[in-house]
């Protein structure tokens, strides 16, 4: 990432984020999935697993400083736990999300962005933009990495 070419530097840069670390985490997760898949699994299940690995490796690499990564990891873990417990009890967890105080100049489209960025519901608008920038960067790195992996595997 060559950040020197920016005319507007990142106002709050994420120093822990690293392309190579992200790829390392993701490839390790893929290897774990591959190793665990001794029994034949359906493609949709594998897809879910790989996507899970993609998002969690992304969040893990970004570190705990970013709110979106924390929210993403918490959500994934809760989902896993719920999936494991689904057979026993069907219980709906009450979600406690303190909505961000909407200020008058906040555009209406910000609500959509809140839904897209993990943990964005409880963020203030300024923080939301910051987290969205970081999230976009990490997602883009992840997409590049996965694309390169797909190309390497298919070739």
């Amino acid at each position: 990432m060559n950040r020197k070419n920016y005319t507007h530097p990142n106002p709050n840069p994420n120093y822990t984020s690293n392309n190579s670390m992200q790829s390392l985490h993701f490839i390790q997760a893929l290897a774990r999935i591959n190793r665990a898949a001794s029994k034949p699994t359906t493609p949709s299940c594998r897809t879910k697993q790989i996507r899970h690995a993609a998002y969690s490796s992304m969040a893990y690499t970004s570190g705990s400083r970013r709110k979106w990564s924390r929210a993403l990891l918490i959500r994934l873990r809760q989902r896993q736990r719920l999936r494991a417990r689904r057979l026993l009890t069907v219980r709906r967890r009450v979600r406690i999300v303190t909505p961000a105080m909407s200020l008058p100049e906040e555009p209406a489209r910000a609500e959509t962005l809140r839904r897209l960025v993990p943990g964005g519901r409880s963020m203030e608008y300024c923080n939301l933009l910051e987290e969205a920038a970081d999230y976009v960067q990490c997602l883009r790195t992840q997409v590049q990495l996965m694309q390169s992996l797909v190309d390497a595997f298919s070739s």
């Binding site: 897809t47 996507r51 993609a54 997409v143 996965m146 595997f153």
Partner: peptide, 15 residues
């Protein structure tokens, strides 16, 4: 980007 992640994970799962 999120759709791409889904798409690529699907691709990786199949490949």
């Amino acid at each position: 980007l999120q759709r791409q992640v889904e798409f690529l994970s699907m691709k990786l799962a199949a490949v």
